[in-house]
Computed example of a mutant assay.
Amino acid sequence: METIKLKNIRTFSNHGCLLEEAKIGSDYTVDLTIKANLQQSTQSDKLADTVDYVHLNRIVVEEMAIRSELLEHVAKRINKRILDELPMVQKTKVAVSKINPPIGGDVESVTLILEESRN
């Protein structure tokens, strides 16, 4: 099983439980790790035989654009779409980070990590 990672996908989104978070939004980063059998693509050198990074990035960006109160919810949607749309992927791990969260302290970011596997 091989690994593909997309690191530090940056988005501006309106996630959060507070009304002001919905209105003003904030910066987020997403790290994505997928596991898949990529042996065929190592031989064929064909995009059709691997997991397309563009498709992975598009899923992250589209799901981050849909407001959620909880990072858990958006992370679950990202993992589910990847497993639904990319049959080659066997396992996903997504880390969604809210930069400078409004939690009453000097905190650089808060990160939620969620892993899913194909049944």
Results as ranks from 00 to 15, higher is better:
76 K>W: 12
46 K>I: 14
11 T>R: 00
105 G>K: 10
97 S>K: 13
5 K>L: 10
19 L>E: 15
113 I>S: 08
59 I>C: 04
110 V>Q: 08
53 Y>P: 01
98 K>C: 06
113 I>A: 12
50 T>V: 06
79 N>R: 00
111 T>L: 07
23 K>E: 15
94 V>R: 05
94 V>H: 10
115 E>Q: 11
15 H>L: 02
59 I>D: 06
10 R>L: 02
25 G>A: 06
63 E>H: 04
40 Q>A: 14
33 T>N: 02
25 G>W: 00
66 I>A: 01
114 L>V: 09
33 T>W: 01
77 R>S: 09
75 A>P: 08
73 H>R: 14
58 R>S: 10
32 L>C: 07
48 A>S: 13
88 M>D: 12
53 Y>L: 07
86 L>F: 00
37 N>P: 11
98 K>E: 14
115 E>K: 04
21 E>W: 03
110 V>C: 10
107 V>A: 08
66 I>D: 05
89 V>A: 13
64 M>T: 06
59 I>M: 05
71 L>I: 09
37 N>H: 09
25 G>R: 07
29 T>P: 14
105 G>E: 09
110 V>K: 03
12 F>R: 07
62 E>F: 15
36 A>N: 05
106 D>S: 10
52 D>A: 12
27 D>T: 02
58 R>G: 06
105 G>A: 15
18 L>T: 03
87 P>S: 07
74 V>N: 03
37 N>T: 05
1 M>P: 10
5 K>A: 13
43 Q>E: 12
29 T>C: 03
99 I>K: 15
51 V>G: 03
119 N>H: 06
57 N>T: 13
96 V>D: 06
95 A>M: 14
104 G>E: 05
42 T>D: 14
42 T>W: 07
104 G>H: 11
74 V>A: 06
75 A>S: 14
72 E>I: 03
115 E>N: 01
93 K>S: 09
118 R>M: 11
31 D>Q: 01
71 L>W: 02
4 I>R: 00
52 D>Q: 11
26 S>I: 02
75 A>R: 04
109 S>N: 10
105 G>L: 02
36 A>R: 07
10 R>I: 00
19 L>S: 02
103 I>W: 06
4 I>F: 01
12 F>A: 04
101 P>R: 04
21 E>R: 02
93 K>T: 12
74 V>Q: 11
65 A>S: 15
88 M>L: 14
54 V>W: 03
27 D>S: 08
37 N>R: 09
62 E>S: 07
44 S>P: 11
18 L>Y: 04
50 T>P: 13
24 I>D: 13
8 N>S: 11
35 K>H: 15
101 P>G: 12
58 R>D: 14
58 R>M: 08
92 T>Y: 13
117 S>K: 10
1 M>Q: 06
114 L>I: 08
40 Q>H: 08
88 M>G: 10
95 A>L: 03
107 V>R: 06
35 K>W: 09
41 S>T: 14
103 I>C: 12
70 L>C: 13
83 L>W: 03
27 D>G: 00
20 E>H: 13
45 D>H: 05
24 I>V: 12
56 L>G: 04
115 E>M: 08
23 K>H: 09
93 K>C: 02
29 T>N: 05
98 K>Y: 00
50 T>I: 13
